[in-house]
Every structure is written in C-alpha cells, then in structure tokens.
Nucleic acid binder design. Structure first.
Length: 453
RNA sequence: GCGGCCAUCGUUCAAUGGUAGGACUACGGGUUGUGGUCCCGUUAACUUGGGUUCAAUUCCCAAUGGUCGCCCCA
C-alpha cells in the first residue's frame, strides 16, 4: 500500500487550471474582529457618536467605491496613497473605480453634488466606516482600516480648526487614552507654500551631498517630505532648514497665530512640530496629528489620527470656494492602544438566571417560559440542546448565574418550577404563575446582600 | 515596494531526519433528575509548493501569512 509520501510524489503535476483550494484565511491585511474585541469597538462607536452629536455633526454615508479619478484629483496623483496603495479595478461596464482610501474626497464630492452648501455654514458632517489601502501590513496597520472623522465645510475662522482638534482629542481622551499630545503645524496656502518650497529647495541644494539617497530624490519630487526623513544625517541637515511657519504669508500667519491662541485656551497638550507635513496634497494651512507618547523603552508609535484644513479641495473639484477643515481617527489604532493601556470597557450584560429543562414535555414548555422571562426583562441563559441536568448545571455554573430554574417532567405536569439559588445550593418548588415575581424579588435581594457584606 | 525575524491541535508550549506530546479550552463520562474541585475519556495540529534524502514536520529554496523596521499613513 502506498504511503502518503509516495502518493504525493506520484501526484500529477499541477495542471494549467488547478482546482482552487479554499484557503481558510482572508486576503492579506484583512482581519476579523472577534466577539472578544467587540466591547472595545462598541465603546469606540459610543464615544465617537456621542462627540459628533455634542458638537453638532450629522452623519453622512458615502459609497465604498468611487471613480478612481476622484481620489487622484482630490488626494493628489503624486501621493503614495494614490500612486501605489489604491484598490483600483474596472467594472464590467468599463468604469475605472477604486475602493476609498479615505473619506474626505468622497465627502467633498457629495457636498458639491447635493448642494449641501445651501445649509448654514459651517456644514458639519461626520462619517465612519472602512477604507482600503494596499500597504504592507504591520501592527496597527491593515489593508482594511476603520475610520471615524468629521468635516466642517464653509468656515474659515481658525476657531473651527481648534474645535476640530478639541473633538478628536476629547474622543481619544474619553476612550481612556490619556498619553496623547497634539502636534500642530501650518503649511500655508498654495501661494506662500510655493515661495517656501523654493527657499527649502535652495537650502537643501546647498547641502545635497549630506542628504540620504531618498531625500535627494525627494528634492526633485516633493522637497517638503525631506522634513519627515528619519535618517540621522538628514535630521542634522534639516535642523537648520527654513521652517514653513517662518515663511507664511500674512493671512496664513494670522490664521495660525489665532489658532495657537485658541489652542492655549483649552487644556489640550500640544506641540508645535515644524516638521509635520501630511501626505495628502489637499491640505492647506493647519495640519495636526494625535500622537500617543511612547514610554522610554517603547518603540515610537504611529499616529492615532490627524487632519487639517483643505481650503482648496472643494473648489478644485468644481464646487464653490469653500474653506474646510476636518480630522479622522484610525479606529483600529484606538482599539489597539486601549488594549495596550488596559482600558476598561463597559461590562457585557450577563444573564443572571439559567433555565434548565429535563424531559420532552418540559423541554417544550421551557420555550414559552424562556420567552415569558425575557419579556419581563429578565435575562435568561439556557442550553436547551443538552440532555442531562448535570451538564446544564455545569453551564449555569460557568455562566455564574445567581439562579437556576429547573423544569423537569414532574414540574411541567404540576405547573411548578424549581428555583435554585446557586450560591447556597438551596432550592424551592414554586408555582409557575409566581415565577416571574419570585425571580425578580430574589434578584433584587441578591444585590442587597452583596452590598451589605 | 524594500529588509530582518517567525510559522506545530481552537489557544499555548514541546519534541523529532523514521509522520508528533503536554497544558488550557471544548465535548462526553464518574449509574437512575443537581453545578465550582477531583478523576477518566474523546475530538483536534506539523501553512503551501519544490529540492536534498531510502525517508522531511525537522535541512535548503520559494510562495503565502504573521511580526518588526524602512517608506508612508490612520
């Protein structure tokens, strides 16, 4: 008889069209959020939606799929997100579409399309849902990521920028993540950015030989990004580089100055970070990121969220001139951070009563009894599929219920129920009509006893 | 897209060039309708594809996935 190995060897070479094997795993970077993690997610949903409501933001849902050029135009063709991270495909009808890598472009589109600008300004919108980026996954970084964010459209006053920062910070704080600072910077408007850019280029040109290879390339393509580089030698060079905040035009400078004043008014820890440059083209003036500070031994952490002003986006997409500012939070990262910090979430509602049945007649009757208990607001657990009373009690014990109701053949016929106190083990036969009242009474008593101890 | 490390029951940790063992969990049992401990049992894994070899879970290569760093971002 051939053994497994020889079978393997004699197997035919893979045919042109091999039978596709079912892989019990989602594609790379995709993951399940299992019941064990749901309390965290539930908490995140609760806090974010509360904050949105408190600040007067209304929910908007936009499609997961948009035309690819919406993102290309909105986010910028030179950005990494558009250049190499989009899930793009052609539909059967030949449309070029992509899964959204972020929300802002789609929201700007919807804002223009539906004439949302007729509402009084600012128009405040919030969103939540998945986005897709084809990146190399690692901790806190997935190809399917969940975001929550807010956009305020039609308001130029820096106080709204601060309010946006306040919201983001408050959400993070309320989730129990207390070790967070806000990094802020202003990258100016297109006009002053252009002159600053020239200044930067000429500065780095003079120090070109001291830069890393990547940065020499960036010098041509996107010199602002050199400020982000972590290479030691580049860090050295950029220490003395001209800073964007020193070269803002008058209007942008005033905007930023006011923003800082407002920010100081709040008790939010913030840091001016002249090297903060965000990767999306549409940003103007204010940019910010929420950073958890790492402990001494810990590696550096990635941003929990960020945002900024995008005064030119709506106009560039064909809408009217609309200053706007927004932020988004990476929910996966928030959950990750909550878990790391050991943040407590709400307790799942646990059943306090277990219903056990024995025998065919009782089994049938227990269905109704279960419903009656549920209807009167008593959360009941059961394990109807199990036969023996013993195994049902084991389950009841594992669930740590306070009471177990036992409905056997005899009780079912008599119209009674055994009510068993799990702590003491004492049990009593009571009339079926009085069951609900008795259970309610006992559950309250149980609570009192615990408190008096 | 680039580089490092890793890959064994559901989880976790072993061992081994001759196909794998424990712990936890799950399920069942320790007689007739009663739970926590204890005891017994059952289910359950070598990521995939090549190569070396008489023989690969073990060695080599690749793919895939995970993780970490870079890039970038939430």
């Amino acid at each position: 008889m051939p053994n497994k190995k020889t079978l393997k060897k004699t197997k035919k070479p893979v045919s042109v069209e091999p039978k596709e094997e079912l892989v019990l795993q989602p594609p790379r970077g995709m993951r399940d959020i299992l019941p064990g993690d749901q309390p965290y997610w539930q908490q995140v949903r609760k806090i974010t939606e509360k904050a949105a409501a408190d600040f007067g933001y209304r929910r908007i849902d936009i499609p997961l799929v948009e035309f690819t050029n919406l993102f290309a135009r909105g986010i910028g063709t030179g950005t990494d997100i558009v250049e190499k991270e989009m899930y793009s495909f052609n539909t059967k009808g030949g449309e070029k579409v992509s899964l959204r890598p972020e929300f802002t472009a789609g929201i700007a589109r919807a804002y223009i399309q539906h004439g949302l600008h007729v509402a009084s300004k600012p128009v405040k919108l919030y969103y939540t849902g998945p986005c897709y980026r084809y990146e190399r996954p690692q901790e806190g970084r997935y190809r399917e990521l969940f975001q929550f964010g807010c956009e305020a459209l039609g308001e130029n006053d820096p106080i709204i920028d601060v309010q946006i920062i306040q919201m983001g910070w408050r959400i993070i704080h309320q989730l129990g993540i207390r070790n967070v600072t806000v990094n802020v910077n202003s990258i100016g408007c297109p006009a002053c950015r252009k002159s600053y850019r020239n200044l930067l280029v000429s500065y780095f040109e003079s120090k070109k030989q001291k830069l890393c290879i990547d940065c020499r390339r960036r010098l041509e393509k996107n010199p602002l990004r050199i400020l982000d580089c972590k290479e030691d030698k580049c860090v050295q060079v950029k220490m003395n580089a001209p800073q964007s905040i020193d070269h803002l035009c008058d209007e942008c400078r005033v905007h930023f100055k006011e923003l800082l004043e407002y920010l100081e008014e709040l008790e939010i820890p913030f840091e001016l970070d002249p090297t903060l440059v965000r990767g999306l083209d549409y940003y103007t003036r204010t940019v910010f990121e929420f950073f958890p500070h790492a402990g001494a031994e810990e590696k550096k952490k990635s941003a929990l969220g960020g945002g900024g002003r995008y005064d030119g986006l709506v106009r560039s997409m064909g809408g009217e001139d609309t200053p706007a500012v927004g932020f988004s939070l990476g929910l996966d990262r928030l959950v990750l951070e909550m878990k790391k910090l050991g943040v407590r979430t709400y307790k799942e509602q646990k059943p306090r009563v277990f219903l056990a049945q024995l025998g065919i007649f009782a089994k049938k009757k227990s269905l109704r009894m279960f419903e009656a208990l549920e209807r009167s607001g008593i959360m009941v657990a059961e394990s109807f599929g199990r036969g023996s009373l013993k195994s049902q009690l084991k389950v009841a014990d594992r669930l740590r219920v306070e009471l177990t109701l036992i409905l056997g053949q005899k009780e079912a016929i008599d119209g009674t129920v055994i009510i068993k106190d799990m702590a003491s083990g004492n049990q009593e036969i009571i009339n079926g009509d009085k069951l609900i009242d008795e259970v309610k009474k006992r559950l309250k008593m149980g609570g009192m006893v615990v408190r008096n101890q």
